[in-house]
């Protein structure tokens, strides 16, 4: 059984180059089971690139990204797994995966990392309910006997589909979109689309949920609702969250652990309070050299 506080995700020496540009430079950090880890930094700091590496959309130039399911003791096999050249191993209920070796869809399917996007990516021409069923594709695929049973309309598939609809209904209740279930996703207002995208990611049964700026474009009330939702996902389901966010009220209120990036380099790592008072972080956000922080801070009344 997983224990809150165990290490879930371990990013080591992650480097991503695009031609001559180093977007992420030798980044290492950890995310713990059941915690909300925030990745913050000024625009262009490389946060989304880190996300894309973790979720398999980019292949990192260097570095290792390990993810653990179940018992944290399996971390001891990390080096053996790395040398073996395999993508992952399982020991009973536990598993260990090297995400940098997996194509994007397997990161979700096998390693169970789900994500959302900065510019929402729903299926706008499909209904809200259909969006949530697409997210349960792999489970339903097995239930439909890879389409074969489904074509002949066997009852086992119908049962599985009903269960999926129930799961979708459950999530729609939680994000408050049950009354819009049969409407096209593209018709929803912006804030609802953000929540639907999170619900859709949750329908893939993740152990780690990666959210790319979930509060962007939300008004204060919606932002507060989002905080509640994220906290409850963490508390009730024991799912860990990794999030990129600019809205400091969200970051400071809900995250257990904050990692700060600037120009692809980690400049601070720790509890929200610690990070908030770190001069390097303030300097990065204000855009001034370290030694001028106090002066500028005094001018603007920090």
């Amino acid at each position: 059984m997983t224990i809150a506080g165990d290490i879930l995700l371990r990013v080591e020496h992650l480097t991503m180059r695009f031609g001559g540009l180093v977007a992420v430079d030798d980044l290492s950090f950890e995310a713990r089971q059941g915690e909300i880890t925030a990745l913050i930094g000024p625009n262009g700091a490389g946060k989304t690139t880190v996300f894309n590496c973790i979720t398999g959309f980019y292949k990192p130039s260097e570095g290792r990204i390990g993810l653990c399911h179940g018992d944290a003791a399996i971390w001891s096999e990390l080096d053996a797994l790395t040398d073996s050249g395999k993508r992952g191993i399982t020991r009973g209920d536990s598993g260990l995966y090297l995400l940098e070796r997996m194509p994007d869809y397997l990161v979700t399917q096998n390693a169970r990392v789900a994500r959302t996007f900065q510019n929402i990516r729903l299926f706008p021409g499909m209904t809200v309910l259909e969006n949530l069923l697409v997210a349960q594709h792999n489970a339903l695929m097995v239930a439909s006997g890879y389409t074969l049973f489904g074509i002949f309309g066997l009852p086992s598939y119908h049962r599985a589909e009903r269960a999926s609809v129930e799961k979708a209904r459950d999530w729609l209740n939680r994000v408050g979109l049950i009354h819009r279930a049969d409407d096209p996703a593209g018709d929803l207002p912006y804030g609802d689309q953000r929540r639907l995208e999170i619900a859709r990611a949750m329908c893939t049964d993740p152990v780690l949920l990666c959210l790319d700026e979930p509060a962007a474009g939300l008004n204060p009330r919606e932002s507060a609702q989002l905080n509640e939702l994220l906290m409850s996902i963490g508390n009730e389901h024991g799912i860990s969250i990794l999030l990129i966010e600019h809205d400091m009220s969200v970051v400071m209120e809900i995250s257990d652990h904050v990692v700060v990036l600037d120009y692809g380099i980690k400049i601070s790592d720790g509890a929200p309070d610690v990070v908030r008072n770190d001069p390097k972080v303030i300097a990065a956000y204000l855009g001034v050299p370290d030694h001028e922080v106090e002066k500028v801070g005094a001018e603007i009344g920090l």
Binding site: T108, R121, M126, H137
Partner: peptide
């Protein structure tokens, strides 16, 4: 449904493990 989702947004499909 995966076909239609693919028509709508391929990247989102991949992010859902398809």
């Amino acid at each position: 449904r995966a076909w239609e989702a693919l028509r709508e947004d391929e990247i989102a499909c991949r992010s859902l493990g398809i």
